[in-house]
Design a binder for these strands. Structure first.
Lengths: 165, 165
DNA sequence: CCTTAACTTCACAAATTTCTGAAGGAAGCG
DNA sequence: CGCTTCCTTCAGAAATTTGTGAAGTTAAGG
């Protein structure tokens, strides 16, 4: 077993994975920099990196790191930590935050629901279009409730499979 | 009750709703034109419109309609119909296509899973990062199975509430 | 306090995306 | 069969987004 395959991680292999995973996230609608930063954090052994480490691995400016991290923190995909007695910040992914972030889709769904409610009203609940809106709205309300339960089931399943956090 | 509030739809109210709902879709990551076209179809009484009608309501060129519709058809949000004995095409939303489209998220999830599997391999299943990948992968596999069941439950729920299609 | 390291904000240049007009087909209709 | 209508494709202009360098801000450490 070579040194690079055991101790020090194969930087190139890591980078390849980071970029290919980030590309998938981008294709699903995520902005490029947040996607790359998130992928890098996800594939770090500690699950966390400093701003400088991120900038170096991804070859991007501190400004780009800053912007990406702000977005990720806002959407709860990543949390910021201050290293005590240092002015370095560490950005971390928790296993849990993955599904917290998914649950945050709720915020989006809520806004859709709001818009649909207005639609039902302004198109008229007794028109064909209004009825279609109402049904769509019902669908989202259904989904919303289901997601909550689904996450609860995942929490149980996860604990059984991977043990308590 | 004025004529416009009863018979002919209030074009301005419809337009306001279309634009505001489309804006929500855009914010969730959808391209602008597909979002506007989809919203317009959703709020039409027939659930379908011709290319010309879409162009007129949204004030966009035939080319833009064409591009938007191609995207929506690819993602199964809208189906194309040919009016028999005419060269006009109608684009239609089915109530069902909403959740067919959601189910199509499966394709995205599948690609993520592929990328994560590669990640587990290339980072090493016995490394902390590799284990995190494996857990993330397990999460998506869980979600994928759940979505299938969820859609089945919706189909039942929908039929009870709104009657058979 | 002053220095300096680390992050953030901002204005701008570059790259990308988006939409249009124009040209190019396909398919009904006479 | 040719004419006409409708849709699509394509090249390019316009708008938007993205990432950078530089200046600004905050807080640790002497």
């Amino acid at each position: 077993m070579t040194e690079s395959a055991r101790g020090a991680r194969d930087a190139e292999a890591v980078s390849r994975f980071v970029e290919s995973f980030a590309a998938q996230l981008v294709e699903a609608g995520m902005q490029r920099m947040p996607a790359r930063v998130f992928a890098a954090l996800l594939s770090s052994d500690e699950g966390s990196m400093t701003s400088a480490e991120l900038g170096e691995q991804l070859r991007i400016s501190p400004a780009a790191v800053s912007g990406a991290v702000r977005y990720l923190a806002q959407t709860h995909m990543v949390s910021r930590e201050r290293e005590p007695g240092s002015r370095r910040e560490r950005y971390r992914v928790h296993g849990n935050q993955w599904y917290e972030a998914l649950t945050n889709r709720e915020a989006v769904i809520k806004r859709w629901e709001g818009a649909l409610r207005e639609g039902v009203t302004s198109l008229g609940a007794d028109t064909p279009a209004g009825r279609r809106m109402a049904e769509t709205l019902a669908f989202f309300e259904f989904i919303e409730a289901e997601i909550v339960e689904m996450m609860e089931r995942w929490r149980v399943h996860r604990e059984k499979t991977f043990g308590p956090e």
